[in-house]
Design a protein around this nucleic acid. Structure first.
Lengths: 90, 90
DNA sequence: GACACATTTAGAAGATTGTATAAATATCTC
DNA sequence: GAGATATTTATACAATCTTCTAAATGTGTC
């Protein structure tokens, strides 16, 4: 469980990006237009999410499409369940 | 799901404190001596964890005893399961 | 009340982060 | 290859965070 993962989750804009990606995969531009900040700032957030392996990318011509890496979320749930879950002492 | 919760989890010292508290409840001093940093710095981290409602305190004479707030961890697991879990679209 | 111990609060310094603008890279169309 | 669009990278600045030392608060003992 990497430190970059928790740091990536600490920002509300990034959590909102992740929620947008639960609905469907989206290009960087489609994501950026949902936020009032500069395009480059959203791109930076996407880079943080990608470095934490929370999202993956695929180039589609001019566009770059982002999708959730659901595997990591399973690991997050497992992290909290095993360490802090009700039956963690069992 | 409050922003302060994710920010509190973003620091490795604070996550380590939470893990120590899964073993047993501990006083501020018992927690602080596990870390190489100044006593006051650990106290600050404890304050952040308490503000995020991840821990609760109880005074015992001179000492202040910290314990995990397990309810919040259940909420965290639920947060990730409902939004990002495999069956979140069901 | 004076002193010792446990802990928090205040204030400051350095590191990290979030956001902005400008420049760079990549792809597509003509 | 020139120009248009999509996206990232570089750089800078302000805000936030982590840690420190010093001072303050709360409790117990004499």
């Amino acid at each position: 469980m990497d430190d970059s993962l928790f740091r990536a989750l600490a920002d509300p804009t990034r959590r909102r990006i992740l929620e947008l990606l639960t609905e469907k995969d989206r290009t960087a531009g489609e994501i950026a237009e949902q936020f009032p900040m500069a395009f480059a700032s959203v791109s930076h957030h996407l880079g943080v999410l990608k470095a934490a392996d929370l999202v993956a990318t695929e180039r589609e011509g001019q566009f770059i499409r982002y999708r959730l890496n659901t595997t990591v979320f399973q690991e997050i749930v497992r992290y909290f369940m095993t360490r802090f879950g009700r039956d963690s002492n069992a």
